[in-house]
Amino acid sequence: MARLNADNERIAHEIIGRYPRKKSALIPLLHLAQEQDGWVTDEAMSHIADLVEVTPAEVLGTCSFYEMFKRHPVGDYHVNICHGIACHLLGADELIHHAEETLGVKGGGTTDDGRFTVEGVECIAACTEAPCLQVNYRFANKVTTQDFDALIADIRSGARSDIPPHGTLAKTRQSIPEERAAGPALVEDAQEPAWLSRNGSDQ
């Protein structure tokens, strides 16, 4: 653990291969690391630095800019309660308060059993469903305090196997079959695409 394992390293190479410049794969690879370990370790960042040929400081510079990357262990279930303006208007603060009370944690803290981390987050794009939240980036809409308690109970009892552990984003990955790939458009390759030059363009 910590460095990308062999499977993930293979995926990493596949992802890197899609971009004209390796560094572009940084964010996807950091997600991969977080998916593997639940958070982004220093070892993983060093490994990624090697893979995309930048310094670890550059990887950390990028990693630390983005909210979703956790650089310390978090709960198995990361509960993000939206406190954006629409949710604010419809009781987000109360919901956050309730969540913190019932789980006994505050401001991004993790429960003692390591199951839940609760955080108020900025708008998660479900404003018409306010107040809303995400558990490991899976939505729950129009959440009342009762809904919240039921959700936590369901997760605890194992009834929410649809929610993957923290770090997993898309359960479906893009895969480009080799024979179907057009290949990255390399920056150095100053070629007008064939279809354009032949068909005539207004360019």
Binding site: A57, L60, S64
Partner: peptide, 20 residues
């Protein structure tokens, strides 16, 4: 590039990678 901006917004700081 061994010193770099880290974190974001009002928390932005210059720093190195840990132990590097």
């Amino acid at each position: 590039p061994l010193i770099h901006f880290m974190d974001r917004g009002n928390q932005t700081q210059v720093n190195t990678f840990p132990d590097e």
